[in-house]
């Protein structure tokens, strides 16, 4: 652990695979730079990889980093828990940042806990918001200012907890994918690149990767302005055509609940919710979806929500701006007609 260091920088782990930065890392750059400004400190990205990742530094700077700590080594080509852990552990002890953020990607959630344990610092999981605030211990009257408020759902999405750590730093958190807006690149931004010497060897790579398969995601839900999502109520794979048709005439993407995915109506890439993608489109149309909390937590931040359900008491109506009670099989064709005539 490091001591509380109010002059410490704000860091984001810049996750890259095969020379491509993860969207979540870019999303974190927007919030990270705001937090650093509020604290009056520098904002840095930490980039690890083989000798080909240097070009990514400019991108990180254009998206908001003041500095990039660049650790290049042939053995850092593929992510491995121990090697990445060791390099970042050394950097944390060298520079003593006050905040270190990771995307809550499969890699981020593999690395961050191992690292927090090694550093003996606290780690908040899967945050959906980060703010700067203060905390008072009622009993003693001690007050701590300028802390990182780490806001996260827990208990299956039924509660929102704000977590802090005021005595053992850095303040570390993983942040859920898709919850922070993607910043706009500014090609004229300038920053500093700091080359770090890396001390690792073959012993830091206890894992041998024998085979690997990467599936390109078939849909990009996060980038869609309109999403039409179907649930178990759609009834069958064939009937899901209604969902595609409505999405198509709005230039939107089809989404689904876990129940619809489990029933084989549509591929898992389309799942929205706690264990799927989190989305915030301009318009979300929920069709035959009951509105379980695990689904709501992935879509309730949408700007406008239309819900179609034949059960007037379905929980989805609690978050809907437009409530339509009735049979989706009758309503969708009428809606398509209305859109085709107006748009």
């Amino acid at each position: 652990m490091i001591k509380v260091n109010k002059k410490g920088e704000v860091w984001v782990f810049a996750e890259q695979h095969r020379g491509k930065l993860e969207d979540t890392s870019l999303e974190l750059l927007s919030r990270g730079s705001i937090l650093a400004k509020q604290l009056g400190v520098k904002f840095a990205a930490v980039l690890l990889g083989d000798n080909n990742v240097k070009p990514l530094c400019d991108k990180l700077i254009h998206f908001g980093a003041d500095k990039v700590y660049l650790a290049q080594h042939p053995l850092l080509e593929h992510y491995q828990t121990n090697s990445y852990n060791k390099v970042i552990y050394d950097l944390i002890h060298k520079y003593e940042p006050q905040i270190v953020l990771f995307g809550a990607t499969p890699t981020g959630r593999d690395l961050a806990p191992r690292l927090a344990s090694a550093v003996k610092a606290g780690l908040t999981a899967d945050c959906t918001d980060l703010q700067i605030g203060s905390h008072e211990i009622k009993k003693t009257g001690e007050k701590y200012d300028n802390l990182l408020m780490q806001i996260r759902p827990a208990f299956g999405g039924n509660i929102i907890a704000t977590i802090i750590n005021y005595d053992r730093w850095p303040q570390m958190a993983t942040v859920r994918e898709g919850v922070m807006p993607m910043p706009e690149a500014n090609g004229t931004r300038k920053g500093e690149i700091i080359n770090e010497t890396v001390h690792i060897n073959q012993l830091d790579l206890p894992i041998e990767i024998i085979a690997e398969h990467i599936q390109a995601k078939k849909v990009n839900l996060k980038a869609s302005r309109v999403i039409v999502a179907g649930g178990a109520g759609v009834g069958s794979k064939d009937n899901f055509k209604l969902v595609y048709d409505l999405a198509n005439c709005l230039g939107g993407a089809p989404g689904a609940t876990r129940a619809a995915v489990d029933l084989g109506f549509i591929d898992r890439d389309h799942q929205i919710g706690q264990t799927g993608t989190t989305v915030r489109p301009s318009l979300y149309i929920a069709v035959g979806i009951s509105g379980a909390i695990q689904h709501q937590s992935g879509m309730s931040d949408s700007q406008k929500i239309i819900a179609i359900n034949n059960d007037p008491d379905a929980p989805i109506f609690n978050v809907a701006h437009y409530k339509i009670v009735g049979d989706l099989n009758a309503i969708i064709p009428m809606m398509i007609k209305a859109i085709k005539e107006k748009v």
Partner: peptide
Amino acid sequence: PTKVHRIQSVVLA
């Protein structure tokens, strides 16, 4: 090191 500052129940309305 982590402490709970606040807990809210979710009212997604």
